[in-house]
Write a protein that binds this DNA or RNA. Structure first.
Lengths: 208, 208
DNA sequence: ACAGCTTTTCGAACAGTGTTGGAAAACGCT
DNA sequence: AGCGTTTTCCAACACTGTTCGAAAAGCTGT
């Protein structure tokens, strides 16, 4: 079958979902298309461009998932709810592939249609909420960079936490008493995420 | 001279400062020590571990810079000022090396002494500010992931923005009217950063 | 159907990467 | 001096992204 920019990105997304960001290679993408690695370079400038196209596709998927989530919201939903819905769908879309946050993080996101769509809709909801126009830009920027950073840290959490010897544990407790305080609740990632979004929203709403 | 874990990390940081994150290779690090690449593996499990050690060192430097910045603050400084000082020094420390955000983003940061120190001090200032203890954890987490995401997006901004043809520009204006609105102010990165930190601080301070 | 031309694919090669394992050297110690 | 351990070398392996000339495939006009 004929080789095409779109088909290459499709194959890229497929192997991306299987092997993750770090193990994605041009040869694997080519193999999935029954083609040779060199042939890809006729349609794509290089791996960087392919990654950028894939990042854009992730954003587009997140955008589509976001419209669905927004449509499912009851009419009584506040603008905070709408922001939260968009943030959550974006987070889940990124988390769908291993290393998805890296993919978004590496590619310069400005020129991507998908990223622009996400941004525009965030701005839209913030403006419709009646927030001052001059603050909406930084608010949306903050949301996006925060979500990226959050999923990044989330996906890089080691699967098996390293074993702590008792002496090391004691040392840690002494040097980092607040961090190691067992009385503080240790919320799940989902809770942390929704709380951080609420945090940002109250920051947006507060007059400055 | 003898090869040592610390000396390897030193050389890694030097190469890192010169060539950036993406072009850092074990052979270059070894060359700087007049050694062969294979010798590094006696002291370091692999490149991942070396990168983790380097990420920790960046955090330690950021921590030290943060103590200086805090010491230079007047006694009348609010807790928001103290948070801002720490955030700014962390941002600058990361930006010192090209691709520094990637370095922090890739390495699982939990087990790093430097990262823990940064976290602990953030928690300290938030607790000293009188914020409710059960919120300080997510607040500090949000701060760190936001800063990482911010510098990431900042460092990945393409040096030369791609040229926009008039027709493309018109299309963009139609699809993204809010983003393309020329009347909205376009603040510098520094302004965006301080504003986002202020945003987070007001979110922290607001009762939930 | 054939030639001619363009678009696309191949296949081999290049330089570079992280990593490994056995041989060789350096070191410390009795 | 000799032995044992710690450290370094060196050559290799299996990859990676990318390039380039040649070969194939597809289309057009006659």
């Amino acid at each position: 079958m004929k080789l095409t920019r779109d088909r290459i990105v499709d194959a890229g997304m497929a192997v991306f979902a299987e092997v993750g960001y770090h193990n994605l290679s041009m040869r694997q993408v080519a193999d999935r298309l029954d083609a040779h690695a060199g042939s890809l370079y006729y349609h794509v400038r290089g791996k960087d461009e392919l990654l950028a196209l894939m990042a854009d596709r992730v954003c587009v998927r997140a955008h589509d998932a976001g419209t669905e989530a927004l449509a499912a919201l009851p009419p009584t939903a506040t603008w905070q709810d709408r922001i939260h819905a968009q943030a959550t769908t974006l987070r889940l879309s990124i988390k769908q592939h291993p290393g998805g946050a890296q993919l978004l993080a590496e590619s310069p996101g400005v020129l991507s249609i998908g990223a622009l769509s996400l941004m525009e809709r965030l701005l839209r909801t913030l403006r419709d909420a009646g927030l001052p126009a001059e603050h909406c830009g930084t608010a949306a920027d903050t949301l996006l960079s925060h979500i990226t950073g959050f999923v990044l840290q989330e996906q890089n959490q080691p699967a098996a936490p390293p074993p702590v010897t008792p002496e090391l544990y004691a040392d840690l407790c002494e040097r980092f008493p607040l961090l190691m305080d067992p009385s503080t609740p240790r919320p799940s990632q989902d809770e942390k995420f929704t709380r951080s979004i609420q945090l940002l929203c109250t920051g947006f709403a507060a007059p400055s």
